[in-house]
């Protein structure tokens, strides 16, 4: 579905991504893990059209994305949950969700479908239903993250890209968010999950990529990566399962 080849991204004179190849198949949940400053968010920005200075090839459903505006990319089916949630704090929860369907509302006949999707999102995150008319800025961190995901789903994406959805959330909330992503994947949605929290992401992912200083250093099935000795040393810590709940509650460990 998404095919990235030899991607090089620049922030002015600084090269943040130095030739990355990445592939996501339909219905897959792929995670891209890496430390701060490794280039994860830059890659997301390039895919979503928010960064213009890049070379290489990004294809979505065999169509090149080069030169497309973010609005055109959203229309083609890529929706993003930005880092730090970036909800519209002065707008109501409902208005935030409706904004997610901004590119769809243009067609009158879509109004009913959008209303149905709104109901679907509110069923997925019932807490948002109770707070629908509240300004989004008054929600807690976890609720804001749910709103950000719900807002992205309102565009009815083919590919959902999440940039560090677990940042700043309590372990239980991280678990809730990740299990929702698993649920969405099981319903057939393709997901690209960018995470620092490597084990939490790999627990639910089908495949994973590890990125370091702008280069993919490791890739493979998520289960293989979880058992990779190098990765354990660098990101997971040798006895990571025993280390929780200091950091997080891994899904499968809990189960």
């Amino acid at each position: 579905m998404l095919n990235i080849q030899n991607l090089k991204c620049y922030h002015g004179r600084i090269q943040a991504i130095k030739g990355v190849d990445l592939f996501i198949g339909k219905g897959e949940l792929v995670t891209l893990v890496g430390a701060n400053g490794s280039g994860k968010s830059t890659l997301v920005q390039a895919v979503c059209g928010l960064l213009n200075e890049w070379k290489g090839e990004i294809r979505f459903e065999n169509e090149l994305l080069a030169g497309l505006k973010p609005s055109s990319i959203v229309k083609r089916g890529i929706s993003m949950v930005p880092e730090g949630r970036m909800i519209f704090s002065t707008l109501s929860v409902l208005d935030n969700l409706k904004l997610g369907a901004y590119t769809r509302y243009r067609k009158k006949r879509m109004a009913e479908a959008v209303e149905n999707d709104l109901q679907m999102v509110l069923d997925l995150f019932p807490v948002l239903k109770d707070r629908a008319s509240q300004p989004a800025g008054t929600l807690s961190g976890g609720e804001q993250q749910m709103l950000a995901i719900g807002r992205a789903l309102m565009a009815r994406p083919k590919l959902l890209v999440l940039d560090e959805p677990s940042v700043g959330l309590a372990p239980l909330l991280v678990r809730k968010i990740l299990s929702t992503l698993e649920q969405l994947r099981n319903q057939g949605l393709t997901i690209l999950l960018i995470e620092q929290n490597a084990h939490a992401a790999l627990e639910i992912a089908d495949r994973g990529y590890v990125i370091e200083t702008g280069r993919v250093v490791l890739e493979g099935a998520a289960s293989d990566l979880l058992n990779d000795e190098e990765l354990k040393k660098v990101y997971l810590g040798k006895d990571y399962c025993e280390s929780y709940p200091k950091n997080f509650i891994p899904l499968r460990c809990c189960n």
């Binding site: 959203v74 970036m86 519209f88 002065t90 208005d95 904004l99 901004y102």
Partner: peptide, 18 residues
Amino acid sequence: RALRSISDSENAAKALGV
């Protein structure tokens, strides 16, 4: 709604296709 979203966060508004 899109207009009000710009003053809140222009980048987030762009990411939603505004």
